[in-house]
């Protein structure tokens, strides 16, 4: 138990180390999420267009 507390205290630098890691991964995950969202939207638009083109051909 004590070692876990020790780990989180980061030798007294917890206030600097943890925010640095937290914000880093927040930004990285946000980046991946936005990329995936963009792809979802692009796929949806392209699919919609494909359906339109197909129905106009029939």
């Amino acid at each position: 138990m004590e070692s876990i507390a020790q780990f989180f205290s980061m030798g007294g630098y917890a206030l600097y180390v943890w925010p640095a890691f937290f914000i880093t991964f927040l930004v990285l995950i946000g980046n991946v999420w936005f990329g995936a969202r963009e792809h979802r939207i692009a796929l949806r638009d392209a699919k919609r267009r494909a359906v339109q083109v197909k129905s106009s051909q029939e």
Partner: peptide
Amino acid sequence: VRVRSGILQ
């Protein structure tokens, strides 16, 4: 992933 969206767009 982003290049794929760019191509699709």
